[in-house]
């Protein structure tokens, strides 16, 4: 038995812990994180910083890039809004109602997490093309979905749906019937219970789900390119523009667009974290 007073140094960064393995696991974690994520991400920022101010503006904010941002952000916003409504209804149905096939619906909600985006892309394209199962009826009404910005919204709706449902579900479930019963016993009607008890409690989770769905949509590529049509200035998303710049060996322009998108992602991450901190304070 070795009872020597070994390793007396105490790190200022942590309390020495009785549970072994801190040094090696944190070392592995930070090394891999740096090698795989942080250093490569820094590379793209460095690459873009090789451009001077006007050069960066020309590459990152060219009219074509601006059109692409408008489409990526606009369609992601529209899709997140659709999901905010129908995702909330789906979550409500899953938590509050018993119905035939509920376990299957519950599993299917996660399909966008499990299905490769390219598969979703070609399936949606086939479905909403003018000769597709759904597209033909839209065509008969004079509407065109696939190969237009509407198609982009459809793809992003598919991609973002689980975020809203899965963020709202636990909150709805925790929102015990007690609270509603209490409100009902105080004489509140159904509408005012929903408006004054349920919706305010859902607020932060709803916003989080919306933001997650939106953030995912902005960067999405695989499911969109098959249904979008990819016409510059019209139906060309920002990630596709990066790919196009890369194919033309225009690395700095690609990096510039990537930096703009990264900044947007970090901003959204910040918003999401703030909303979640707010939600935790509310529920605490």
């Amino acid at each position: 038995m070795t009872l020597s007073a070994s390793s007396k140094r105490l790190s200022p960064f942590r309390r020495r812990s009785a549970i072994p393995g801190f040094g090696i696991t944190l070392g592995v974690t930070i090394s891999l994180l740096s090698l795989v994520v942080l250093i490569p991400l820094a590379a793209v920022i460095l690459k873009a910083s090789g451009l001077d101010g006007p050069g960066f503006m020309a590459a990152g904010f060219s009219p074509r890039a601006m059109a692409a941002y408008r489409l990526s952000f606009g369609a992601a916003f529209a899709a997140a809004s659709v999901n905010a409504v129908f995702g909330a209804l789906t979550a409500w149905a899953l938590v509050r109602y018993e119905f035939f096939g509920k376990p299957i619906v519950n599993a299917l909600v996660d399909l966008p997490f499990a299905l490769p985006t390219a598969v979703a892309g070609i399936a949606l394209a086939a479905l909403y093309a003018p000769n597709g199962w759904v597209g033909q009826y839209l065509a008969a009404m004079g509407l065109k979905a696939a190969y237009t910005p509407v198609g982009v919204v459809i793809a992003l709706t598919f991609i973002g749906l689980p975020f809203v449902v899965r963020t709202l579900e636990p909150v709805l479930r925790d929102l015990s019937a007690d609270v509603e019963e209490a409100a009902a016993s105080l004489g509140a009607g159904r509408i005012s219970i929903i408006g004054r008890v349920i919706l305010p409690a859902l607020g932060p989770a709803w916003l989080t789900g919306f933001a997650l769905s939106f953030a995912r949509g902005v960067g999405e590529y695989g499911s969109v390119i098959f249904i979008a049509g990819n016409m510059p200035y019209k139906s060309e998303i920002a990630p596709l523009l990066i790919v196009i710049q890369l194919e033309q060996f225009n690395y700095q322009a690609a990096a510039a667009i990537a930096v703009v998108m990264l900044s947007a992602s970090f901003a959204m991450l910040l918003v999401i974290n703030t909303v979640q901190a707010w939600a935790r304070r509310l529920s605490a």
């Binding site: 038995m1 070795t2 009872l3 020597s4 007073a5 070994s6 007396k8 009785a18 072994p20």
Partner: peptide, 16 residues
Amino acid sequence: LFDQRDVTFASAAARQ
């Protein structure tokens, strides 16, 4: 100290 042995930084596993 355990019986005058300094165990201040000995691991829990070593202390019995």
